[in-house]
Amino acid sequence: MITNKVGNPIRVGVLGFGGLGQAAAKILDPKGEMLLVAVADRQGYVYDPAGIDLDSAISTYHSSNSVGHLESGGTLSSHSIKDLIDRAEVDGYFLALPNLPNTFMADVAKEFIASGWKGVLVDALKRTSAVEQLLELQSELQQAGITYLTGCGATPGLLTAAAAVAAQSFAEIHTVKITFGVGIANWEAYRATIREDIAHMPEYDVETARAMTDREVAALLDKTNGIISLENMEHADDIMLELAGICDRERVTVGGVVDTRNPKKPLSTNVKVTGRTFEGKISTHTFTLGDETSMAANVCGPAFGYLKAGMALNDRGITGLFTAAEIMPQFVK
């Protein structure tokens, strides 16, 4: 069992409390090895060293748009992330934040570096260019005593790691093809995630998607019957597999279908790794996720598995930037 340095459960903070952040909190709630002690949203934060009351946090967020309104431990703040970092004693944070604009996650990392905080950070970044920005902070993160694991969701993340393991059967990797299917009953539960997906659509980019009002997003989804189809996305699986020495990024493709009106997946999420064995045979490994597992389960579960692995590294003095294709996640009990 991995604990913090005083032998207690790992004290966890979640930055962002939209659909993904709330799902992350629900996944943590029954865990014994991790304790949710801190949450921040745009307007405030809550910190409770004894553990946050999840039901109260979610109901307060829905009724008041911020956990800062919580009577117990809540604080309203226009600089919620900075203020929380300064006040809370947290071993590791899951950055369940929308990377809008595309520099946002790197900017948050710089806040942690500047604060003097030491510990583990985990994100579920999607874009290759966003991961490249974090790579530029490698030495600063290392010197700051921060172990940062990036691209630790589903894709990039779970499927990237599966591809890295599957690649071991081959002498040469020809292609890695990731195809995802996501089903959600109501897009408004995952507004930031859907905007990030829209940013990958033809004729859209990060700034366009970020500037869209909820009404404009709804109008776009009306035109597509709630379906977002994506091909050849700028997805960090490519740079992560390249950094891990699996294959050149040009051999990695990512695409999928998001149904914003139906919780059932429109297609099964999978990764296919095709290569040549040492005997000269061409073959394909396929790893398919169960259709019953939600986007939240496939993103947040791995994120906390990587956070636990990051704690083990950090406790040994190993700091800097790592990806989901380099480190094996550890199961959180």
Results as ranks from 00 to 15, higher is better:
Pro263Val: 13
Ala109Met: 02
Ser56Trp: 06
Leu70Gln: 10
Leu121Ala: 03
Met311Asp: 00
Gly256Phe: 00
Ala40Pro: 06
Val14Thr: 09
Gln143Cys: 05
Ile318Thr: 15
Val90Pro: 04
Phe170Lys: 01
Val6Pro: 00
Leu134Met: 13
Ala192Thr: 12
Ser268Cys: 09
Gly51His: 08
Gly145Arg: 07
Gly183Ser: 09
Thr147Leu: 12
Glu250Asn: 14
Glu196Ser: 06
Thr175Trp: 00
Gly44Gln: 05
Trp187Asp: 05
Glu279Tyr: 09
Lys118Val: 06
His69Leu: 03
Lys5Cys: 04
Ala309Phe: 05
Asp55Thr: 13
Cys152Asp: 06
Phe322Lys: 08
Ala325Ile: 01
Ala25Pro: 07
Arg276Trp: 05
Val206Gln: 12
Gly301Thr: 10
Met212Ile: 10
Arg42Val: 12
Asp123Glu: 05
Gly44Lys: 04
Ala166Lys: 01
Arg316Lys: 15
Gly255Val: 05
Lys281Pro: 00
Cys247Leu: 11
Thr150Ile: 07
Ile246Thr: 14
Gly13Lys: 01
Ala164Arg: 11
Val206Phe: 07
Ala296His: 03
Gly255Cys: 10
Phe94Arg: 00
Leu134Tyr: 03
Ile327Ser: 12
Asn99Gly: 08
Asp86Glu: 14
Val271Asn: 01
His69Met: 10
Glu250Arg: 15
Val67Phe: 05
Leu313Glu: 06
Thr75Ser: 12
Gly7Cys: 07
His174Gly: 02
Phe112Thr: 01
Ser56Met: 11
Gly18Ala: 09
Thr260Ser: 07
Glu326Lys: 09
Gly44Arg: 01
Ile228Leu: 15
Arg127Phe: 13
Met328Lys: 15
Glu242Gly: 12
Asp123His: 03
Arg195Ala: 14
Asp259Glu: 09
Gly310Arg: 01
Lys281Glu: 10
Leu121Asn: 02
Leu241Pro: 05
Pro266Arg: 04
Lys308Met: 10
Ala185Lys: 08
Thr175Asn: 07
Gln330Asn: 11
Leu243Glu: 08
Leu158Ser: 08
Leu241Ser: 05
Gly320Ile: 02
Gln138Cys: 03
Lys5Gly: 03
Glu203Ala: 11
Leu20Phe: 11
Ile146Arg: 03
Gly183Asp: 09
Asp259His: 13
Glu136Trp: 00
Leu289Gly: 08
His235Ser: 14
Glu172Leu: 02
Pro302Val: 07
Ala325Glu: 02
Thr274Gln: 07
Ile198Met: 13
Ser77Tyr: 12
Thr150Gln: 10
Asn298Trp: 02
Trp117Val: 06
Asp48Val: 15
Gly18Val: 04
